[in-house]
Amino acid sequence: MYVTIPTQPSANADVTPLRNAHTIPAEARLKAGSYLYFEGDSVVWLYQVITGVLRLTRMLEDGRRQVISFGYPGDIVGFPSDGLHHTDCDVLVTARLQPYRRSSLECGDGDPELHQKLLQAALREISAMQDHFMMLGRKSAIEKVASFICVLSDRVGRDCGAYRHVELPMSRTDIADFLGLTTETVSRTFTQLRKSKIIAIDNIHTVIILRPTALLALSLGDRE
């Protein structure tokens, strides 16, 4: 998941694997805190997230961390760079994953339909990554945080009464490392949104959107 215009199905709905028949091996299940792969590992499998949340990260040369993206249901992670994984990938919320062989992406000899679906998923990721990088360079802190909440609202938000609730399994530091901000700036921005009565914070991991139109306007750069 990147901060961009969502193109994946909402994670509130059940995710259907790209290919139900002849998929080998069966679903993998990983507990929160475990790692799926590490940067530099050879890519053998790609993984479609069925349930749960993944975190993809890289370490910079100076020791700082960059969160590259989050993997939500419907996302596919593990696309290779010169045959290798270019990020670490760990599990934030216990996940079910459908593996697909890397060869299914690189050639369509075995299953042309699966090859085409994986190729389209890779192209969507490239486009979303470009949009996300543009957002990082152009938006202010409040615009970035508002955009982040809006995208998660669309992907995993749930309606409770008159308001929409969004679960944030990641820490404020994760959000900061994802949006190119400091943890203090992210915390301050959440407080600003709360004081403006645009959101409420039920607990550190739950945001309640009180004024969705105002939040969307902020994400687009329209200030009240």
Rank of each mutant, 00 (worst) to 15 (best):
M135L: 03
A121R: 12
T23S: 08
Y163L: 08
L168M: 00
D75F: 07
A214N: 01
R155Y: 14
V207T: 07
R65E: 15
Q98C: 04
C107L: 06
L168I: 00
D14E: 04
L119A: 09
P169I: 01
D177H: 14
C107Y: 03
A146P: 05
L216H: 08
M170S: 09
L46V: 05
A146Y: 08
K195L: 06
T57Q: 14
T57V: 15
L30G: 05
V166L: 13
F79E: 07
V67N: 05
V186K: 04
P9L: 05
A176M: 06
S140C: 02
P112N: 00
A11Y: 11
R223C: 02
K117I: 00
I175N: 07
A176V: 05
V91F: 03
G157W: 04
I126W: 04
I24T: 13
V145C: 07
D154R: 06
I198F: 05
T213Y: 00
Q48D: 15
V151D: 04
S196N: 03
Q116I: 00
K197G: 07
L193N: 03
K195A: 10
T7N: 09
A95M: 05
G40F: 09
V3Y: 12
Y163R: 11
G78R: 15
I209L: 06
K117E: 03
A217T: 06
T16P: 01
L193Y: 03
I76D: 12
D62W: 11
D82H: 14
L119Q: 15
R164Q: 10
D174R: 14
L84R: 13
Q130W: 09
G83Y: 11
P9I: 06
F70G: 10
R29N: 10
D90E: 13
P112Q: 02
G78D: 08
K139L: 03
S219N: 04
E61I: 01
D174F: 04
G180Q: 01
T183S: 13
S34T: 15
R158D: 07
F133W: 12
P112V: 00
L220I: 10
L152E: 11
E184W: 04
Q116F: 03
V15G: 06
H165M: 09
M134Y: 10
L92F: 06
Q66P: 02
S153G: 04
A121L: 00
L215H: 02
L92P: 12
T4N: 01
T23K: 08
G74V: 06
T182E: 06
A122G: 09
G63L: 11
D154T: 13
L215I: 09
V166T: 07
P212Q: 13
V77E: 15
E143W: 01
D174Q: 15
T7L: 09
G71Q: 02
L54V: 09
F190S: 05
D109I: 01
I5W: 06
T206G: 02
L216N: 02
V49G: 15
Y2V: 13
